[in-house]
Nucleic acid binder design. Structure first.
Length: 589
RNA sequence: GGGGUCGUAGUUCAGCUGGUUAGAAUGCCUGCCUGUCACGCAGGAGGUCGAGAGUUCGAGUCUCUUCGGCCCCGCCA
């Protein structure tokens, strides 16, 4: 099919082009037939051009244009002229192209939904016809920003002596961490490759190799359940640096993020970012990824209630737990129904109950009032400096759970009170540091690495590793923006003896360690430089840069929350022949 | 693995305690219309009510099963 190639893009037409003869290529956005006058809007990636036909002056052209419908692909040639009535809402709105000749390059069936920006259509349908959905400027903008981010990554890290190196997509399955996607080997039947959860081990080995600084925009795969911010395959900006301490890594990435926010949003963010220990983040915000754009901080009330006769509190304290609270400004008039909803919300996070104190119309009311002395009640109110019209929420539980519930309540109150709307233009970057090295896994009855097994303990905590591994802290860092974890990393262990020690604390025997991580352990024996790094979630960064809260809108071909691709219908069944070749059988349910 | 919610013209939705022929808007088709840009006006076509089973004289509506979308908990080093 031959066509006349464009001489200018639809979205580029301006006053300056008036008088020029131009050719356009694009999709028909809409056709407005006024009878004696026909307008056709032609759309490309850059915008929309209005084409005009006067049937009285060019009856043949008008007749030929009759079959043109939305989403037809066409070329059009004509002369640019000033519009009689201008549309100042679009950049091309002062001019139009008086049609002289055109061709339909490809017709289109009637699309299942209109290609409109303010589209209100079921996501299921959008995903099935993803190519049409992606035609919408609203979505294209996201990918143009995503593309800008790629370019900044290449430029910034190249200028800072990083080397881009590709690591394998077929790799060894690592049992720690998320569930692996597996790929059966045809040549070695019964054996499997795994898709990387991250190129962690490879990038550490590249440091041993002496590349000094590594960066890669890389796909990672985790076979876990999906969420609005989690896809089974996602993209990381993965980095590693040699001969550095934690501070060097943080500084390098502050520079990067500052540049990104400047180049893409023209926002000046202040560096260095605030750094907050994990313990403080939990005790003040109830989260390891605190949204610091607003206050409403958690208070720990243990000191006020040491002699409490309320059994729920005294038992919690006796068990070493905490009693914590949160003041919700202006929520003192919450109804029974609203408070029940909050209680239900808290229960999702494992709360046994939710205590509250309402200060409303001069009255103090609380279901736990009868269990508290006047002094205790007053001390709690004073602690929060609570005023009439406020609501205090109280949770007592084990340390982690209590703060986690309070942190969730804090965000829920912020949502209910419209606080997020009020702070939506703020960008609060924050480093969370000093994470625990280990978490205790109740199911397996052993310690597991909170970050990953190659994370270095803080030097001053080395000596408590033996008697109290749960107390040891890691040289790990998460970068948090507005309550979203956009990346994390650590300084790694570069000493084989320390690495072996870590495995033994995690009840991974020498044989098992050798079998699973032998190649890294071997590499560490041949002169490993001190090194560390970080990986940023590129998809989540794009979400924040574009102000949307759904990761599917920044991924060209995403999966649904059940892991299906509705456009190409995968995963799908395969021939028995294929399975046989791979030495794989399928269990019948 | 668990919880919540949704599924009705192409699309977005309405459809009460079960009761005639399942509606609206928009899109689509036809006609009219010379400055529209969400064009306007008139007319028309368009439905296995996600699928299956059950209760009932009668099911879009009630029950069960199942498929799918979205959100959350668990999970996600």
């Amino acid at each position: 099919m031959s066509f006349v190639k464009r001489t200018i893009k639809c979205g580029e037409l301006r006053r300056e082009n008036i008088g020029q003869k131009v050719s356009l290529n694009g999709w028909v956005a809409v056709r407005r037939d006024l009878g004696g006058l026909i307008f056709i809007d032609l759309r490309d990636r850059w915008g929309i051009a209005q084409i005009v036909i006067h049937p009285e002056e060019s009856p043949v052209l008008a007749e030929r244009a009759k079959p043109i419908r939305s989403e037809f692909v066409m070329w059009a040639t004509g002369t640019v002229r000033e519009r009689e009535s201008k549309n100042m809402k679009i950049p091309t709105g002062e001019v139009e192209v008086l049609l002289e000749d055109f061709g339909i390059i490809n017709p289109s069936e009637l699309p299942p939904f209109e290609i409109l920006n303010d589209l209100d259509v079921n996501e299921e349908l959008r995903l099935k016809y993803r190519y049409l959905d992606l035609r919408r400027p609203y979505l294209q903008e996201k990918f143009l920003i995503r593309n800008k981010l790629y370019q900044i990554v290449h430029k910034y890290f190249y200028e800072n002596d990083f080397v881009e190196i590709e690591t394998p997509v077929l790799m060894k399955s690592t049992p720690e961490g998320a569930r692996d996607f597996l790929v059966p080997s045809r040549i070695h039947k019964g054996k499997f490759y795994a898709l990387p959860q991250s190129p962690q081990i490879y990038k550490q080995i590249l440091m041993v190799s002496g590349f000094d600084r590594y960066v890669q925009i890389v796909k990672c795969f985790r076979d876990e359940d999906l969420r609005s911010d989690r896809q089974p395959e996602f993209t990381q900006i993965d980095c590693e640096m040699s001969f550095v301490e934690q501070d060097d890594i943080l500084t390098m990435f502050e520079g990067f993020l500052k540049l990104v926010w400047k180049d893409i949003l023209n926002q000046d963010v202040q560096i260095p970012f605030q750094r907050m220990p994990y313990k403080e983040a939990m005790e003040r915000y109830g989260s390891d990824k605190p949204d610091t754009r607003f206050g409403m901080e958690i208070e720990t009330l243990n000191d006020l209630l040491t002699n409490s006769e309320f059994q729920v509190f005294s038992q919690t304290l006796a068990d070493g737990g905490i009693i914590g609270g949160l003041k919700a400004n202006g929520c003192g008039a919450y109804s029974r129904k609203q408070l029940d909803n909050l209680t239900e919300f808290a229960k999702k996070y494992g709360a046994k109950g939710l205590a509250y104190i309402k200060l409303n119309e001069g009255q103090i009311s609380s279901p736990i009032a009868k269990f508290l002395s006047d002094t205790e009640m007053q001390s709690i109110i004073d602690k929060f400096d609570a005023k009439d019209g406020d609501l205090i929420l109280i949770i007592s539980d084990k340390w982690t759970r209590a703060y986690t519930i309070l942190g969730a309540l804090r965000l829920e109150i912020a949502r209910l009170q419209g606080i997020f709307d009020a702070v939506k233009d703020k960008y609060n970057f924050l480093w969370v540091v000093d994470f625990p090295l280990f978490e205790y896994d109740e199911e397996d009855n052993r310690y597991v690495a909170m970050h990953h097994p190659f994370t270095s303990p803080k030097l001053e905590d080395l000596e408590i590793l033996d008697e109290n591994p749960g107390k040891a802290r890691a040289i790990a860092h998460d970068i948090v923006l507005n309550g979203v974890e956009i990346g994390g990393g650590s300084v790694r262990i570069h000493d084989n003896a320390v690495q072996q020690k870590m495995f033994s604390l995690m009840s991974i025997g020498p044989e098992e360690a050798k079998d699973k991580f032998g190649h890294l352990l071997d590499a560490l024996k041949y002169g490993a430089p001190p090194h560390g790094g970080i990986a940023l979630g590129l998809d989540r960064m794009v979400m924040l840069l574009t102000g949307i809260d759904n990761i599917r809108d920044v991924i060209a071909f995403p999966k649904t929350t059940s892991g299906l691709s509705l456009m190409d219908n995968c995963p799908s069944a395969v021939d028995t022949k294929q399975l046989t070749e791979l030495g794989v059988g399928v269990l019948q349910k």
